[in-house]
């Protein structure tokens, strides 16, 4: 069953078609990588899927709800309840500790629970760094806090924008292992990347170009 469906979606800025009549389905539990060069429409698609922008044309169904018709307030609620976001720049609140950063996501979603936040950090191997501020953590550690924060509310869709873009190889592998684990547990992952190695480990790779889907292929080596 598809969790996310884009039907003839276009995003038009003046004469520029950032997305041009794109249709796409992502099933529940699927791990999809979206690739493409700069200006191919990756970020626009990411913003629309992440409920931070609306398409100019077409429908976007997330868990059966057409989010292209929702108000800004509803989009905030949907984002909070259904989507976990992971950023290239990590974007942690710099004056809150690792565990507090995870709890911020709980705070907006439902009720902060320090024990649960600690468990999320444990899951990404950062239990011993829970009381550290972002400035005291390495880039890889910060990205793992960002993942723990994205996971804490059990989102239906995990949306990652260049999650390994600022990481060295060792940390990149750690993050991809976590993604692999999450996929095995049934989490739906959409990862935007320009790194072929990151795209290769996904179940399916969609390549964008000039706002259109150029290629949509299943990775034969997936899981090996």
């Amino acid at each position: 069953m598809s969790l996310l469906e884009l039907k003839n979606v276009s995003k038009i800025y003046g004469d520029l078609h950032a997305l041009d009549n794109v249709s796409l389905k992502v099933d529940t539990g699927e791990w999809v990588a979206i690739m493409g060069p700069s200006g191919s429409g990756k970020s626009t698609m990411m913003n629309i899927i992440g409920c931070m922008d609306k398409p100019s044309k077409g429908e976007v169904l997330l868990d059966g709800v057409d989010i292209s018709k929702e108000s800004a307030k509803s989009l905030t609620r949907i984002r909070r309840d259904k989507i976990g976001l992971i950023f290239q720049q990590f974007h942690l609140v710099n004056y809150l500790t690792a565990v507090e950063n995870v709890m911020v996501s709980q705070y907006y979603h439902s009720m902060p629970d320090e024990k649960e936040a600690m468990q999320a950090l444990e899951r990404v191997g950062l239990a011993d760094r829970a009381k550290h501020l972002p400035s005291q953590l390495s880039g890889g550690e910060q990205q793992r806090v960002c993942i723990a924060r994205a996971l804490i509310n059990y989102p239906e869709l995990l949306l990652a924008d260049e999650p390994t873009g600022n990481l060295d190889e060792a940390n990149e592998n750690i993050v991809l292992d976590i993604f692999s684990q999450l996929h095995k547990e049934g989490t739906t992952l959409v990862v935007v990347t320009h790194d072929p190695e990151v795209a290769e480990v996904a179940q399916r790779t969609i390549t964008l170009g000039h706002g259109k889907i150029m290629k949509d292929m299943i990775n034969e080596n997936f899981g090996r």
């Binding site: 931070m52 905030t76 609620r77 909070r80 976001l85 911020v104 996501s105 907006y108 979603h109």
Partner: peptide, 16 residues
């Protein structure tokens, strides 16, 4: 501004 944007991305309402 960045922190505010992040909080909004995490689902914070304007009132919050």
């Amino acid at each position: 501004r960045k922190e505010i944007g992040l909080r909004k991305a995490l689902g914070a309402s304007d009132a919050s």
